[in-house]
Design a protein around this nucleic acid. Structure first.
Length: 666
DNA sequence: ATACGATTTTTTTTT
DNA sequence: AAAATCGTAT
């Protein structure tokens, strides 16, 4: 459309802001230059305020490449950017928008060398990281047989938490893992070794992306100047979920223009397990004394009945900004509490009720079932499948983390970086008669080669391990040969097909029962790869992505009426449905027993509960299975969630209880 | 010594 | 359900 010469054209769009925004939102959108804090309740149109502010800034002449929009999820970034694009006709690629990890990655690709990384470093996902930590543990030959010595993933959690909270490993152990204090020294050793190994491998984990960006900005003033001058406006979504490192990055990036706008809701801070610290938002006014504070409290989403439950529940948390969601919608249906005999009956009830709702004409895309932990959805998945109700499950292992996806990408990683130790180890173990020991030997051989991929075809390669491994290695050769031939002059998808055709398909058949869906996944991956210019870009992006359907936006939007969604409460943040079922509202499940042990656990769980409630527009169901099957097939009685009990204390007049109760019998 | 199959444990939430 | 660990057969 039109030219973009600002001198000739009238303002890009003549947007009537007052028409699309309420007075609260309008103030935020129109606010002048200065630090801004927006306390935005659930459903108050915070995304709207944010997108319109970006539009307004562009409208008043700020060029898009000087705006940074930081979000928590890829999905949120995409949603906002596409709305801005629709409203302004501006090429959205110029605007810096994305997750913190994406933004960090973008800058580190350019300046990572200043910190001693090659610019083609690769990104480890959590599994890679845990694997490397396990390697470090065995290399250190610690006495891990000792009573209760932590597993690799626990050590990983400790290290990660330390990085995300600016704390030392021993500090984290003392505060959050006191029972491991006797092993503090060993864990520190593991952490130190892990650091070294990552650097050797030229790899960064998720935490490195953040910490290295901060390091870059702190230690290299020329870099800090470049970006802090560049970004005239920085806008941050979900600020309550930032951790200290992210907050510092933002402070550094905005140190010159000081136009930092943070939007968030302290009542929806649910990522403390990842180091998120809502004192960032609580103390923001102290860090920026000239801040202007706005509150968005008008809720457009939910019925008064639903908001009443939400408001009532969250008042049980002490430490928060005072705020109350004000409904604008008219009266609706009261939320419903449904006690159920057990999980089976719960699955039955939810499926049954869903069928009724669909019959009433509610589109499937307007129904969601939310839960605290992925395994809570097992029985329901089975029941929905049995009844032939199609659903979408955004949970469990994410697309790019599934074994078959990682296997195939490991092959490709060898092409990009022939010294990728993790990739070699993963790939070789796929072959028969090649296990831990053989892999170790082969790696020592590979490590010392000038050109590892060519050396695969040498006799020395075959001879560096016992003969039993030879057939596997010969098979491996075929795949490598095929990949090398295709790699340079063909689309990425060809390489993926080559891996499939030269044995991986057969491996899948032997190993898994659900080959069809796995093969389909790999086709999707091949399809998705066409969006990337080079294999390098492709692989680098993968670790930061989560869901392929989401990336293929056609998928998402062209669903007729959508599907019923099953997902964790964490994933539901920012979304809304007409009807929401919260399942497993039983003590120990919601709140989750394990989380209650963490400092501040109960409050955080209550915030989760609050997030879940405020997803619902019209109807809300709390399901409470009473009987739980424990390990030894014993039955245990679970009381209703304390969050429900506190809404209906016994002294309360029954009319005051904010929800109805249904009895379900067979 | 090694790989593989059986057994046990463990699974919050996400970039 | 999946991974880590354990035990056994080669």
């Amino acid at each position: 459309m039109g030219t973009s010469n600002p001198k000739l054209d009238p303002p890009i769009a003549m947007i009537d802001y007052e028409k699309y925004l309420n007075p609260e939102q309008l103030e935020v959108v129109m606010a002048g230059d200065s630090p801004l804090l927006v306390i935005a309740g659930a459903g108050s149109g915070k995304t709207r305020a944010l997108t319109y502010r970006v539009v307004r800034l562009i409208d008043s002449g700020v060029s898009p490449e000087r705006i940074l929009l930081a979000t928590f999820t890829n999905k949120a970034a995409r949603a906002m950017l596409s709305r801005v694009e629709a409203l302004t006709d501006v090429d959205i690629k110029k605007l810096w928008g994305g997750t913190f990890h994406h933004i960090s990655n973008r800058i580190l690709r350019k300046y990572g060398h200043l910190l001693g990384y090659e610019n083609n470093y690769s990104i480890m996902d959590q599994e890679d990281s845990r694997q490397l930590i396990n390697t470090c543990m065995s290399e250190l030959e610690l006495n891990t047989k000792l009573d209760r010595f932590p597993r690799g993933n626990v050590v990983g959690d400790i290290i990660s938490f330390a990085m995300n909270t600016n704390d030392s490993v021993s500090g984290v152990i003392k505060k959050r893992f006191p029972y491991l204090y006797i092993y503090a020294e060993q864990i520190q050793k593991i952490a130190a070794r892990y650091e070294i190994r990552k650097k050797e491998l030229n790899m960064m984990d998720f935490d490195d992306l953040l910490c290295n960006l901060r390091k870059l900005l702190v230690n290299f003033s020329e870099v800090k100047n470049e970006y802090s001058h560049r970004f005239v406006h920085v806008l941050v979504d979900e600020y309550q979920d930032t951790n200290i490192v992210q907050a510092e990055i933002l402070d550094l990036l905005t140190s010159y223009h000081r136009n930092i706008m943070v939007v968030g809701d302290d009542s929806q801070s649910i990522y403390s397990f990842r180091g998120a610290d809502f004192s960032n938002i609580i103390h923001f006014p102290e860090r920026y004394p000239d801040v202007k504070i706005f509150k968005l409290e008008t809720n457009y989403r939910s019925t008064p009945e639903i908001l009443h439950v939400a408001n009532m529940s969250i008042t049980n948390n002490e430490n928060r900004f005072q705020k109350e969601l004000r409904p604008v919608r008219g009266a609706g249906i009261r939320p419903v509490y449904v006690p159920l005999r057990n999980v089976i009956q719960q699955a039955d009830f939810v499926s049954q009720r869903i069928i009724e709702l669909l019959r009433e004409g509610i589109p499937p895309g307007e129904i969601a079932v939310l839960y605290r932990a992925h395994y809570h959805s097992m029985e329901l998945q089975m029941e929905l499948t049995r009844r032939g109700i199609p659903f979408e499950i955004r949970s469990g292992i994410r697309f790019f983390e599934q074994a078959h996806i990682k296997d195939v990408t490991a092959f490709m990683r060898l092409l990009i970086n022939p010294f990728d130790e993790l990739a070699w180890k993963r790939v070789l173990k796929l072959y028969k008669r090649i296990g831990k020991v053989a892999v170790g030997k082969i790696w020592t051989f590979i490590m010392n080669q000038r050109d590892p991929l060519s050396s695969v075809f040498s006799d020395d390669f075959l001879q560096c391990v016992s003969k039993t491994a030879t057939p596997g290695l010969l098979e491996f050769r075929v795949t490598v040969k095929s990949m090398l031939e295709l790699y340079q002059n063909n689309p990425i998808s060809e390489v993926i097909n080559a891996v499939m055709d030269t044995g991986y398909r057969q491996y899948l058949q032997e190993k898994y029962s659900d080959i069809n869906s796995r093969e389909e996944d790999l086709n999707q991956l091949a399809n998705f790869s066409s969006k990337f210019g080079s294999m390098e870009d492709f692989l680098n992006e993968l670790a930061l992505l989560t869901n392929i359907a989401e990336e293929n936006e056609m998928y998402l939007s062209s669903r007729d009426g959508g599907r019923i969604l099953l997902g964790s409460i964490h994933q539901a943040k920012g979304l809304e449905w007409s009807v929401v079922f919260i399942i497993w509202c039983s003590e120990g499940m919601m709140p989750l027993a394990r989380s209650l042990k963490e400092p501040g656990g109960e409050d955080e769980e209550r915030r989760l509960f609050y997030v879940a409630i405020t997803r619902a527009k019209d109807q809300l169901y709390f399901c409470h299975p009473v009987m739980n099957y424990t390990r030894g097939m014993d039955k245990a009685v679970l009381p209703p969630s304390r969050f429900l009990k506190e809404l209906a204390p016994s002294h309360l007049d029954p009319a005051e209880i904010p929800f109805d109760q249904w009895m379900v019998d067979e």
